[in-house]
């Protein structure tokens, strides 16, 4: 146990964290590019057209990974906020600070790609559906967190207030995820993140999983790059 604690405190020390990032950053970038290339090639050129939607369903290969990332970035931020509030670990605050604009962009892109998919399939770019509305609220939460960070001049106070607001905003995450189950929505129900096997053909599922991994690695690479900058200050 003391050995584990020592290893943990070594990892969260700025010097070792920067060293860890330098060591793995390139590997993460290469893995990200491989996943995205595989996903794009198979998703756009090899996977067959959908029998109902035709080719337009291929927007799924950017829309679904972005939607998953918009939620998982917020989960990471909430965990970091919790760790920062309880143990006052500065790196956790840095990760939360870096993640907020990335998450906001992912969420805005989720809504954009969703509307690009909605127009040819539903006949409208936007509808006040539970899933779409809760995702829009998520963008506003991200923007509020970024605004609070820059509005408060005292850095320590800004970090604490942002952590509390992040934890309060986390209530929206299960609402976004379960909105399609709790309410009768135009947006389809879950096809991958659900109990039982995914209801999607394997040839369409593989590139989607590769894209999800690619977008996660892209987020990881961005966090590593910006964290290294923050640590060198």
């Amino acid at each position: 146990m003391p050995h584990r604690t020592a290893a943990f405190s070594k990892l969260i020390s700025p010097k070792h964290c920067a060293h860890f990032i330098s060591r793995y950053q390139k590997i993460v970038l290469i893995a990200c590019m491989i996943c995205l290339l595989y996903g794009l090639i198979v998703g756009l050129f090899i996977a067959p057209a959908d029998y109902q939607q035709g080719n337009v369903y291929r927007i799924m290969y950017v829309h679904v990974p972005l939607a998953i990332q918009s939620l998982s970035v917020y989960v990471v931020m909430s965990l970091c906020a919790f760790i920062f509030l309880i143990w006052k670990i500065k790196i956790a605050d840095f990760v939360a600070k870096i993640s907020a604009p990335i998450g906001a962009v992912f969420t805005a892109l989720t809504l954009f790609t969703g509307s690009m998919w909605g127009k040819p399939t539903w006949g409208t770019y936007w509808i006040w559906d539970a899933r779409l509305t809760s995702e829009l609220i998520l963008v506003f939460i991200y923007i509020a967190i970024i605004a609070i960070r820059y509005a408060i001049i005292d850095d320590r106070l800004a970090s604490r207030v942002c952590a509390v607001v992040t934890l309060l905003g986390a209530i929206n995450i299960p609402i976004v995820h379960y909105s399609v189950i709790w309410w009768n929505t135009l947006h389809q129900g879950p096809s991958i993140l659900k109990i039982g096997a995914p209801s999607i053909a394997p040839i369409m599922l593989h590139p989607l999983l590769a894209m999800i991994a690619g977008f996660f690695l892209y987020y990881l690479f961005l966090v590593m790059t910006e964290l290294k900058t923050e640590l060198s200050r």
């Binding site: 950017v62 990335i102 962009v105 998919w117 961005l222």
Partner: peptide, 30 residues
């Protein structure tokens, strides 16, 4: 087809801009 092109080009353009900003910030500090 137009919707796929618009969606993919906007997403990847934003991602590349985001990446350039992060790398620029890093190089400015080094």
């Amino acid at each position: 087809m137009i919707f796929i092109c618009v969606a993919y080009s906007v997403v990847f353009a934003v991602m590349i801009i985001q990446l350039i900003f992060a790398l620029k910030k890093k190089s400015r500090h080094e």
